[in-house]
Design a protein around this nucleic acid. Sequence first.
RNA 1: GCUUCCUUAGCUCAGUCGGUUAGAGCAUCUGACUGUUAAUCAGGGGGUCCAAGGUUCAAGUCCUUGAGGGAGCGCCA
Length: 465
Amino acid sequence: MKRTEIINALQLAGEGQLINVRGWVRSRRGNKNVSFIALNDGSTIKNIQIVVDLAVFPEEQLKPVTTGSCISATGHLVASQGSGQAVEIQLTELEVYGTADPEQYPLQKKGLSMEYLRTIAHLRPRTNTFGAVFRIRHNMAMAIHQYFHEHGFFYFHTPIITASDCEGAGQMFQVTTKNLYNLKKDDEGKIDYSDDFFGKQTSLTVSGQLEGELAAMALGKIYTFGPTFRAENSNTPRHLAEFWMIEPEVAFIQKDELMELEEDFIKYCVRWALEKCQDDLQFLNQFVDKGLIARLESVVNTDFVRLTYTEGVNILQEAIKNGKKFEFPCTWGDDLASEHERYLVEEHFKKPVIMSDYPKDIKAFYMKINEDDKTVQGTDVLFPQIGEIIGGSVREESLDKLNAEIERREIPMKDMWWYLDTRRFGAAPHAGFGLGFERLLLFVTGMQNIRDVIPFPRTPKTAEF
RNA sequence: GCUUCCUUAGCUCAGUCGGUUAGAGCAUCUGACUGUUAAUCAGGGGGUCCAAGGUUCAAGUCCUUGAGGGAGCGCCA
Protein backbone atom coordinates (compact mmCIF):
# COMPACT_ATOMS: atom_id res chain seq x y z
CA MET A 1 0.00 0.00 0.00
CA LYS A 2 1.21 3.48 -0.88
CA ARG A 3 2.63 5.51 1.98
CA THR A 4 0.93 8.74 3.01
CA GLU A 5 3.19 11.34 4.55
CA ILE A 6 2.03 12.37 7.99
CA ILE A 7 1.85 16.05 7.03
CA ASN A 8 -0.73 15.07 4.41
CA ALA A 9 -2.50 12.48 6.53
CA LEU A 10 -3.19 15.10 9.18
CA GLN A 11 -4.93 17.28 6.57
CA LEU A 12 -7.43 14.56 5.66
CA ALA A 13 -10.89 14.21 7.13
CA GLY A 14 -11.12 11.03 9.19
CA GLU A 15 -13.74 9.13 7.22
CA GLY A 16 -12.52 5.65 7.94
CA GLN A 17 -10.37 5.43 4.83
CA LEU A 18 -7.50 2.94 4.88
CA ILE A 19 -4.07 4.61 4.83
CA ASN A 20 -0.47 3.68 5.47
CA VAL A 21 2.05 5.80 7.34
CA ARG A 22 5.70 5.08 8.10
CA GLY A 23 7.98 6.71 10.56
CA TRP A 24 9.78 6.65 13.87
CA VAL A 25 8.03 6.06 17.16
CA ARG A 26 8.22 9.05 19.49
CA SER A 27 6.38 7.38 22.36
CA ARG A 28 3.94 4.64 23.22
CA ARG A 29 1.60 4.65 26.18
CA GLY A 30 -1.69 3.12 27.22
CA ASN A 31 -3.31 0.47 29.40
CA LYS A 32 -4.15 -3.20 29.04
CA ASN A 33 -6.91 -2.53 26.52
CA VAL A 34 -5.47 0.08 24.21
CA SER A 35 -2.06 1.42 23.25
CA PHE A 36 -1.26 4.81 21.68
CA ILE A 37 1.71 5.28 19.40
CA ALA A 38 2.93 8.80 18.59
CA LEU A 39 4.52 8.48 15.15
CA ASN A 40 6.68 11.06 13.37
CA ASP A 41 8.09 10.83 9.85
CA GLY A 42 9.88 14.18 9.63
CA SER A 43 7.45 15.66 7.11
CA THR A 44 6.08 17.85 9.89
CA ILE A 45 6.79 18.49 13.54
CA LYS A 46 3.39 17.03 14.34
CA ASN A 47 2.96 13.36 15.22
CA ILE A 48 0.09 11.18 14.13
CA GLN A 49 -1.55 9.05 16.79
CA ILE A 50 -1.94 5.36 16.07
CA VAL A 51 -4.46 3.55 18.23
CA VAL A 52 -3.87 -0.13 18.85
CA ASP A 53 -6.59 -2.43 20.16
CA LEU A 54 -4.73 -4.89 22.37
CA ALA A 55 -7.44 -7.50 21.75
CA VAL A 56 -6.33 -7.52 18.09
CA PHE A 57 -2.63 -6.88 18.64
CA PRO A 58 -1.48 -8.60 21.84
CA GLU A 59 1.16 -6.82 23.93
CA GLU A 60 3.74 -9.38 22.84
CA GLN A 61 3.41 -8.23 19.23
CA LEU A 62 3.86 -4.59 20.28
CA LYS A 63 7.02 -5.29 22.31
CA PRO A 64 9.39 -4.07 19.57
CA VAL A 65 7.41 -0.83 19.13
CA THR A 66 9.49 1.29 21.47
CA THR A 67 10.69 4.89 21.38
CA GLY A 68 13.00 5.29 18.40
CA SER A 69 11.89 2.20 16.49
CA CYS A 70 10.73 2.50 12.89
CA ILE A 71 7.39 1.09 11.81
CA SER A 72 4.94 0.94 8.94
CA ALA A 73 1.36 1.25 10.16
CA THR A 74 -1.75 0.67 8.11
CA GLY A 75 -5.22 1.40 9.42
CA HIS A 76 -8.39 3.40 9.19
CA LEU A 77 -8.12 7.16 9.52
CA VAL A 78 -10.90 8.26 11.86
CA ALA A 79 -11.89 11.30 13.88
CA SER A 80 -10.08 11.10 17.21
CA GLN A 81 -11.94 10.30 20.39
CA GLY A 82 -9.23 12.08 22.33
CA SER A 83 -8.80 15.84 22.48
CA GLY A 84 -5.17 16.29 21.43
CA GLN A 85 -5.65 15.67 17.72
CA ALA A 86 -8.33 15.83 15.02
CA VAL A 87 -7.67 12.46 13.43
CA GLU A 88 -5.97 9.21 14.37
CA ILE A 89 -5.31 5.82 12.82
CA GLN A 90 -7.01 2.65 14.03
CA LEU A 91 -4.30 0.06 13.40
CA THR A 92 -5.09 -2.95 11.24
CA GLU A 93 -1.61 -3.93 10.04
CA LEU A 94 1.80 -3.39 11.58
CA GLU A 95 5.28 -3.93 10.22
CA VAL A 96 8.37 -3.18 12.27
CA TYR A 97 11.21 -1.98 10.05
CA GLY A 98 13.82 -1.44 12.73
CA THR A 99 13.86 -1.82 16.50
CA ALA A 100 15.62 0.50 18.95
CA ASP A 101 16.68 -1.08 22.22
CA PRO A 102 15.13 1.25 24.83
CA GLU A 103 17.96 0.50 27.24
CA GLN A 104 20.37 1.97 24.72
CA TYR A 105 18.43 4.47 22.61
CA PRO A 106 19.62 7.87 23.87
CA LEU A 107 16.68 10.10 22.97
CA GLN A 108 14.06 10.62 25.62
CA LYS A 109 10.84 12.54 25.78
CA LYS A 110 12.32 15.38 27.79
CA GLY A 111 15.30 16.82 29.56
CA LEU A 112 17.92 16.75 26.83
CA SER A 113 20.36 19.64 26.77
CA MET A 114 21.74 21.11 23.55
CA GLU A 115 25.25 20.21 24.78
CA TYR A 116 24.27 16.58 25.21
CA LEU A 117 22.51 16.47 21.84
CA ARG A 118 25.70 17.73 20.20
CA THR A 119 27.41 14.57 21.41
CA ILE A 120 24.78 12.56 19.52
CA ALA A 121 24.55 14.81 16.48
CA HIS A 122 23.85 11.74 14.32
CA LEU A 123 20.52 11.22 16.11
CA ARG A 124 19.48 14.73 17.04
CA PRO A 125 17.56 15.40 13.80
CA ARG A 126 14.97 13.04 15.27
CA THR A 127 14.14 15.48 18.05
CA ASN A 128 11.40 18.08 17.71
CA THR A 129 13.81 20.97 18.05
CA PHE A 130 16.30 19.81 15.46
CA GLY A 131 13.61 18.60 13.10
CA ALA A 132 12.16 22.11 13.23
CA VAL A 133 15.56 23.75 12.78
CA PHE A 134 16.53 21.65 9.79
CA ARG A 135 13.16 22.06 8.08
CA ILE A 136 13.56 25.82 8.54
CA ARG A 137 17.14 25.57 7.28
CA HIS A 138 15.84 23.99 4.07
CA ASN A 139 13.15 26.65 3.77
CA MET A 140 15.64 29.47 4.15
CA ALA A 141 17.81 27.96 1.42
CA MET A 142 14.76 27.85 -0.84
CA ALA A 143 13.80 31.41 0.11
CA ILE A 144 17.26 32.63 -0.81
CA HIS A 145 17.26 30.97 -4.22
CA GLN A 146 13.71 32.14 -4.86
CA TYR A 147 14.47 35.73 -3.89
CA PHE A 148 17.43 36.03 -6.17
CA HIS A 149 15.79 34.15 -9.01
CA GLU A 150 12.74 36.42 -8.84
CA HIS A 151 15.00 39.47 -8.87
CA GLY A 152 17.02 38.43 -11.90
CA PHE A 153 20.17 37.21 -10.15
CA PHE A 154 22.05 34.20 -11.49
CA TYR A 155 23.30 31.48 -9.15
CA PHE A 156 27.02 31.40 -9.87
CA HIS A 157 29.27 28.63 -8.60
CA THR A 158 32.61 29.77 -7.27
CA PRO A 159 35.41 27.31 -6.50
CA ILE A 160 35.82 25.61 -3.16
CA ILE A 161 39.51 24.95 -3.75
CA THR A 162 41.42 28.15 -4.40
CA ALA A 163 45.01 29.15 -5.06
CA SER A 164 44.65 32.73 -3.91
CA ASP A 165 45.78 33.34 -0.36
CA CYS A 166 44.98 37.01 0.00
CA GLU A 167 41.24 37.12 0.27
CA GLY A 168 41.92 38.63 3.64
CA ALA A 169 38.96 37.02 5.33
CA GLY A 170 40.84 34.72 7.66
CA GLN A 171 43.18 31.79 8.10
CA MET A 172 42.84 29.10 5.46
CA PHE A 173 42.78 25.31 5.48
CA GLN A 174 45.42 23.95 3.17
CA VAL A 175 44.57 21.37 0.50
CA THR A 176 47.23 18.90 -0.51
CA THR A 177 47.69 15.32 -1.66
CA LYS A 178 51.29 15.20 -0.46
CA ASN A 179 52.61 13.15 2.42
CA LEU A 180 52.93 15.74 5.15
CA TYR A 181 55.74 13.81 6.84
CA ASN A 182 57.94 13.80 3.79
CA LEU A 183 57.59 17.13 2.01
CA LYS A 184 59.83 18.26 -0.80
CA LYS A 185 61.67 21.41 0.23
CA ASP A 186 63.92 23.88 -1.53
CA ASP A 187 67.38 25.01 -0.45
CA GLU A 188 65.92 27.50 2.03
CA GLY A 189 63.76 24.83 3.64
CA LYS A 190 60.55 26.17 2.12
CA ILE A 191 58.01 23.65 0.90
CA ASP A 192 58.11 23.07 -2.85
CA TYR A 193 54.56 22.67 -4.10
CA SER A 194 55.53 22.06 -7.72
CA ASP A 195 54.84 18.33 -7.40
CA ASP A 196 51.63 18.78 -5.41
CA PHE A 197 48.31 17.99 -7.09
CA PHE A 198 47.73 21.50 -8.42
CA GLY A 199 51.39 22.38 -8.75
CA LYS A 200 50.99 25.21 -6.28
CA GLN A 201 49.79 25.85 -2.77
CA THR A 202 46.02 25.57 -2.53
CA SER A 203 43.42 26.05 0.18
CA LEU A 204 39.72 25.86 0.90
CA THR A 205 37.93 29.07 0.05
CA VAL A 206 37.24 31.68 2.70
CA SER A 207 34.96 33.66 0.40
CA GLY A 208 33.59 33.48 -3.11
CA GLN A 209 33.41 37.24 -3.39
CA LEU A 210 36.37 37.91 -5.66
CA GLU A 211 35.19 35.29 -8.16
CA GLY A 212 31.67 36.64 -7.70
CA GLU A 213 32.87 40.05 -8.81
CA LEU A 214 34.17 38.52 -12.02
CA ALA A 215 30.74 37.07 -12.68
CA ALA A 216 28.94 40.33 -11.92
CA MET A 217 31.13 41.97 -14.54
CA ALA A 218 29.56 39.66 -17.11
CA LEU A 219 26.13 38.57 -15.93
CA GLY A 220 25.23 41.77 -14.12
CA LYS A 221 23.60 40.31 -11.04
CA ILE A 222 24.81 37.08 -9.47
CA TYR A 223 24.86 35.36 -6.12
CA THR A 224 26.86 32.54 -4.64
CA PHE A 225 25.61 30.14 -2.00
CA GLY A 226 28.07 27.55 -0.82
CA PRO A 227 30.32 26.29 1.93
CA THR A 228 33.11 28.46 3.25
CA PHE A 229 36.03 27.49 5.46
CA ARG A 230 37.94 29.49 8.02
CA ALA A 231 40.72 28.09 10.14
CA GLU A 232 40.38 30.78 12.79
CA ASN A 233 40.54 29.56 16.36
CA SER A 234 37.25 31.21 17.19
CA ASN A 235 35.41 29.71 20.14
CA THR A 236 32.06 31.45 20.28
CA PRO A 237 28.40 30.55 19.76
CA ARG A 238 28.52 32.53 16.49
CA HIS A 239 31.47 30.97 14.64
CA LEU A 240 32.01 27.81 12.64
CA ALA A 241 35.09 26.59 10.79
CA GLU A 242 32.80 25.35 8.01
CA PHE A 243 29.77 27.47 7.26
CA TRP A 244 27.56 28.43 4.35
CA MET A 245 27.65 31.88 2.89
CA ILE A 246 25.45 33.81 0.49
CA GLU A 247 27.26 36.45 -1.53
CA PRO A 248 25.34 38.51 -4.07
CA GLU A 249 27.33 40.82 -6.31
CA VAL A 250 25.62 43.46 -8.43
CA ALA A 251 26.89 45.68 -11.21
CA PHE A 252 25.77 49.29 -11.56
CA ILE A 253 24.43 49.87 -8.06
CA GLN A 254 25.49 52.34 -5.43
CA LYS A 255 25.53 52.40 -1.68
CA ASP A 256 21.85 53.27 -1.16
CA GLU A 257 20.73 50.52 -3.47
CA LEU A 258 23.04 48.06 -1.77
CA MET A 259 21.52 48.83 1.61
CA GLU A 260 18.04 48.53 0.12
CA LEU A 261 18.97 45.12 -1.25
CA GLU A 262 20.32 43.97 2.12
CA GLU A 263 17.18 45.01 3.95
CA ASP A 264 14.73 43.73 1.35
CA PHE A 265 16.52 40.38 1.12
CA ILE A 266 16.52 39.68 4.85
CA LYS A 267 12.90 40.71 5.21
CA TYR A 268 11.94 38.40 2.34
CA CYS A 269 13.60 35.45 4.06
CA VAL A 270 12.02 36.18 7.43
CA ARG A 271 8.61 36.66 5.84
CA TRP A 272 9.04 33.30 4.10
CA ALA A 273 9.70 31.63 7.43
CA LEU A 274 6.68 33.26 9.04
CA GLU A 275 4.47 32.13 6.16
CA LYS A 276 5.78 28.65 5.47
CA CYS A 277 7.26 27.37 8.72
CA GLN A 278 4.43 28.18 11.10
CA ASP A 279 4.27 24.85 12.92
CA ASP A 280 8.01 24.70 13.45
CA LEU A 281 8.22 28.35 14.53
CA GLN A 282 5.38 27.88 16.97
CA PHE A 283 7.20 24.97 18.54
CA LEU A 284 10.44 26.94 18.80
CA ASN A 285 8.54 29.95 20.11
CA GLN A 286 7.08 27.79 22.86
CA PHE A 287 10.11 25.73 23.89
CA VAL A 288 13.25 27.53 22.75
CA ASP A 289 12.66 31.27 22.62
CA LYS A 290 9.41 32.82 23.84
CA GLY A 291 9.95 36.09 21.98
CA LEU A 292 10.84 34.52 18.65
CA ILE A 293 7.76 35.08 16.53
CA ALA A 294 7.24 38.61 17.85
CA ARG A 295 10.85 39.42 17.00
CA LEU A 296 10.54 38.02 13.47
CA GLU A 297 7.35 39.98 12.87
CA SER A 298 8.94 43.16 14.14
CA VAL A 299 11.88 42.80 11.73
CA VAL A 300 9.51 42.35 8.80
CA ASN A 301 7.51 45.41 9.82
CA THR A 302 10.19 47.96 10.77
CA ASP A 303 12.54 50.00 8.67
CA PHE A 304 16.18 49.29 9.42
CA VAL A 305 18.12 52.27 10.74
CA ARG A 306 20.71 53.77 8.34
CA LEU A 307 23.65 55.04 10.31
CA THR A 308 27.17 56.01 9.38
CA TYR A 309 30.03 54.80 11.50
CA THR A 310 30.79 58.40 12.45
CA GLU A 311 27.21 58.99 13.61
CA GLY A 312 27.38 55.72 15.56
CA VAL A 313 30.55 56.77 17.33
CA ASN A 314 28.94 60.12 18.20
CA ILE A 315 25.94 58.37 19.74
CA LEU A 316 28.23 56.10 21.75
CA GLN A 317 30.40 58.95 22.97
CA GLU A 318 27.29 60.86 23.95
CA ALA A 319 26.10 57.80 25.90
CA ILE A 320 29.45 57.55 27.67
CA LYS A 321 29.19 61.24 28.59
CA ASN A 322 25.80 60.49 30.11
CA GLY A 323 27.23 57.78 32.29
CA LYS A 324 27.00 54.64 30.13
CA LYS A 325 29.89 52.31 31.02
CA PHE A 326 31.66 50.19 28.42
CA GLU A 327 34.57 47.85 28.91
CA PHE A 328 36.38 49.30 25.90
CA PRO A 329 36.81 52.92 24.88
CA CYS A 330 35.09 54.22 21.78
CA THR A 331 37.23 56.44 19.62
CA TRP A 332 36.86 57.31 15.95
CA GLY A 333 39.09 55.04 13.89
CA ASP A 334 38.79 51.95 16.05
CA ASP A 335 36.49 49.11 15.17
CA LEU A 336 33.39 48.99 17.33
CA ALA A 337 33.42 46.30 19.99
CA SER A 338 30.52 43.87 20.30
CA GLU A 339 29.23 45.78 23.31
CA HIS A 340 29.11 48.99 21.27
CA GLU A 341 27.18 47.40 18.45
CA ARG A 342 24.82 45.78 20.92
CA TYR A 343 24.17 49.08 22.64
CA LEU A 344 23.22 50.76 19.37
CA VAL A 345 21.01 47.91 18.16
CA GLU A 346 19.47 46.60 21.37
CA GLU A 347 19.29 49.68 23.58
CA HIS A 348 19.50 52.88 21.56
CA PHE A 349 17.52 52.06 18.40
CA LYS A 350 15.97 48.73 19.39
CA LYS A 351 15.87 47.66 15.75
CA PRO A 352 18.27 46.41 13.08
CA VAL A 353 20.90 48.91 12.00
CA ILE A 354 22.75 49.19 8.70
CA MET A 355 26.00 50.88 9.52
CA SER A 356 28.06 52.37 6.71
CA ASP A 357 31.14 54.41 5.84
CA TYR A 358 33.71 52.90 8.15
CA PRO A 359 37.31 54.12 8.56
CA LYS A 360 39.24 52.55 5.71
CA ASP A 361 41.91 51.01 7.92
CA ILE A 362 39.47 48.69 9.68
CA LYS A 363 37.94 47.36 6.45
CA ALA A 364 39.07 45.29 3.48
CA PHE A 365 41.20 46.55 0.63
CA TYR A 366 38.53 46.25 -2.05
CA MET A 367 36.03 48.68 -0.52
CA LYS A 368 35.29 51.91 -2.35
CA ILE A 369 37.05 54.87 -0.79
CA ASN A 370 34.93 57.96 -0.11
CA GLU A 371 35.98 61.42 -1.24
CA ASP A 372 37.18 62.25 2.28
CA ASP A 373 39.86 59.57 1.69
CA LYS A 374 39.26 58.43 5.28
CA THR A 375 36.20 56.24 5.04
CA VAL A 376 35.04 53.43 2.79
CA GLN A 377 31.59 52.42 1.62
CA GLY A 378 31.11 49.36 3.77
CA THR A 379 27.56 48.56 4.79
CA ASP A 380 27.16 46.08 7.64
CA VAL A 381 23.78 44.93 8.90
CA LEU A 382 23.75 44.62 12.69
CA PHE A 383 21.05 42.49 14.30
CA PRO A 384 19.94 42.22 17.90
CA GLN A 385 21.65 39.37 19.78
CA ILE A 386 23.56 38.15 16.74
CA GLY A 387 25.61 41.19 15.85
CA GLU A 388 26.92 41.42 12.32
CA ILE A 389 24.69 39.29 10.12
CA ILE A 390 25.73 40.88 6.83
CA GLY A 391 29.00 42.43 5.77
CA GLY A 392 28.74 44.34 2.52
CA SER A 393 30.36 47.11 0.54
CA VAL A 394 30.53 49.06 -2.64
CA ARG A 395 33.68 47.83 -4.37
CA GLU A 396 36.45 50.12 -5.52
CA GLU A 397 36.27 50.03 -9.30
CA SER A 398 39.22 52.31 -10.03
CA LEU A 399 42.32 50.27 -10.89
CA ASP A 400 44.65 53.03 -9.68
CA LYS A 401 42.97 53.44 -6.34
CA LEU A 402 42.73 49.70 -5.84
CA ASN A 403 46.40 49.21 -6.69
CA ALA A 404 47.39 52.00 -4.34
CA GLU A 405 45.48 50.30 -1.53
CA ILE A 406 47.04 46.91 -2.34
CA GLU A 407 50.50 48.47 -2.25
CA ARG A 408 49.81 50.40 0.94
CA ARG A 409 48.67 47.23 2.66
CA GLU A 410 51.45 45.13 1.12
CA ILE A 411 48.97 42.50 -0.06
CA PRO A 412 50.59 39.74 -2.15
CA MET A 413 48.65 39.85 -5.42
CA LYS A 414 50.92 37.59 -7.46
CA ASP A 415 48.22 34.94 -7.97
CA MET A 416 45.44 37.53 -8.17
CA TRP A 417 46.17 39.19 -11.51
CA TRP A 418 42.82 37.93 -12.78
CA TYR A 419 40.93 39.91 -10.14
CA LEU A 420 42.58 43.14 -11.21
CA ASP A 421 41.49 42.45 -14.77
CA THR A 422 37.92 43.32 -13.68
CA ARG A 423 39.21 46.88 -13.20
CA ARG A 424 41.47 46.77 -16.24
CA PHE A 425 38.84 45.75 -18.78
CA GLY A 426 35.44 47.39 -18.67
CA ALA A 427 35.43 48.29 -15.01
CA ALA A 428 31.99 49.06 -13.64
CA PRO A 429 30.65 50.37 -10.38
CA HIS A 430 29.41 47.41 -8.38
CA ALA A 431 28.61 46.28 -4.87
CA GLY A 432 27.76 43.18 -2.92
CA PHE A 433 27.52 41.59 0.47
CA GLY A 434 28.12 38.39 2.36
CA LEU A 435 25.52 36.82 4.59
CA GLY A 436 26.38 33.99 6.99
CA PHE A 437 23.64 31.44 6.40
CA GLU A 438 23.88 29.99 9.89
CA ARG A 439 23.70 33.46 11.43
CA LEU A 440 20.45 34.05 9.55
CA LEU A 441 19.26 30.72 10.94
CA LEU A 442 20.22 31.72 14.48
CA PHE A 443 17.95 34.71 14.10
CA VAL A 444 15.08 32.88 12.40
CA THR A 445 15.06 29.87 14.76
CA GLY A 446 15.91 31.62 18.02
CA MET A 447 18.59 29.02 18.71
CA GLN A 448 21.41 30.25 20.93
CA ASN A 449 24.40 28.42 19.48
CA ILE A 450 25.44 28.27 15.83
CA ARG A 451 26.49 24.63 16.31
CA ASP A 452 22.80 23.81 16.63
CA VAL A 453 21.63 25.24 13.29
CA ILE A 454 23.97 23.18 11.08
CA PRO A 455 23.64 19.39 10.98
CA PHE A 456 27.32 18.61 11.41
CA PRO A 457 29.18 21.50 13.04
CA ARG A 458 32.91 21.93 12.53
CA THR A 459 34.63 24.00 15.19
CA PRO A 460 38.13 24.00 16.68
CA LYS A 461 38.90 20.49 17.95
CA THR A 462 35.55 19.12 16.82
CA ALA A 463 34.86 17.23 13.59
CA GLU A 464 32.90 14.27 14.96
CA PHE A 465 30.20 12.78 12.73
C1' G B 1 44.19 32.58 21.59
C1' C B 2 42.74 35.18 26.55
C1' U B 3 39.25 35.26 30.86
C1' U B 4 35.80 32.60 33.59
C1' C B 5 32.45 28.76 35.05
C1' C B 6 31.19 23.63 34.79
C1' U B 7 32.19 17.96 34.80
C1' U B 8 28.19 13.22 40.47
C1' A B 9 23.11 7.23 37.74
C1' G B 10 21.15 6.65 30.64
C1' C B 11 19.49 12.28 30.92
C1' U B 12 18.73 16.94 34.05
C1' C B 13 20.63 18.08 38.61
C1' A B 14 21.04 18.30 44.47
C1' G B 15 24.93 16.89 47.77
C1' U B 16 25.49 21.93 54.04
C1' C B 17 31.63 23.20 57.65
C1' G B 18 35.93 17.65 54.80
C1' G B 19 32.94 12.92 58.62
C1' U B 20 28.18 6.62 58.78
C1' U B 21 25.93 2.81 53.38
C1' A B 22 26.23 9.35 47.68
C1' G B 23 20.32 11.36 46.74
C1' A B 24 15.94 13.35 43.68
C1' G B 25 13.10 13.93 39.11
C1' C B 26 12.84 11.88 34.38
C1' A B 27 14.23 7.55 31.45
C1' U B 28 14.50 2.15 31.74
C1' C B 29 12.41 -2.63 33.87
C1' U B 30 8.09 -5.10 36.61
C1' G B 31 3.07 -4.52 37.97
C1' A B 32 -1.76 -1.70 38.24
C1' C B 33 -5.28 1.23 35.47
C1' U B 34 -11.59 0.97 30.07
C1' G B 35 -8.96 6.54 25.43
C1' U B 36 -3.78 8.26 26.69
C1' U B 37 -1.59 13.50 25.24
C1' A B 38 5.59 15.13 28.78
C1' A B 39 -0.48 9.89 30.81
C1' U B 40 -1.06 8.53 35.98
C1' C B 41 -0.08 5.24 40.35
C1' A B 42 3.10 1.41 43.05
C1' G B 43 7.68 -1.10 43.18
C1' G B 44 12.77 -2.79 41.40
C1' G B 45 17.55 -2.31 39.14
C1' G B 46 21.11 1.31 37.94
C1' G B 47 27.45 5.10 40.49
C1' U B 48 35.39 4.37 38.09
C1' C B 49 31.55 11.30 41.82
C1' C B 50 36.06 13.49 34.34
C1' A B 51 41.59 11.77 34.88
C1' A B 52 46.28 11.77 37.44
C1' G B 53 48.80 13.42 41.59
C1' G B 54 48.72 15.84 46.47
C1' U B 55 46.94 17.57 51.67
C1' U B 56 44.34 14.88 55.70
C1' C B 57 42.87 10.14 60.78
C1' A B 58 39.11 10.91 56.82
C1' A B 59 38.09 13.84 50.06
C1' G B 60 32.28 13.86 45.63
C1' U B 61 33.72 18.20 48.83
C1' C B 62 40.28 21.31 49.71
C1' C B 63 45.07 22.03 46.47
C1' U B 64 48.01 21.17 41.67
C1' U B 65 48.16 19.58 36.69
C1' G B 66 45.63 17.70 32.50
C1' A B 67 41.24 16.51 29.35
C1' G B 68 36.31 17.72 27.71
C1' G B 69 32.25 21.21 27.57
C1' G B 70 29.64 26.17 28.21
C1' A B 71 29.76 31.48 28.38
C1' G B 72 32.30 36.34 27.75
C1' C B 73 36.20 38.70 24.80
C1' G B 74 39.24 38.98 20.34
C1' C B 75 38.70 37.70 14.89
C1' C B 76 34.70 37.65 11.64
C1' A B 77 29.89 35.94 8.44
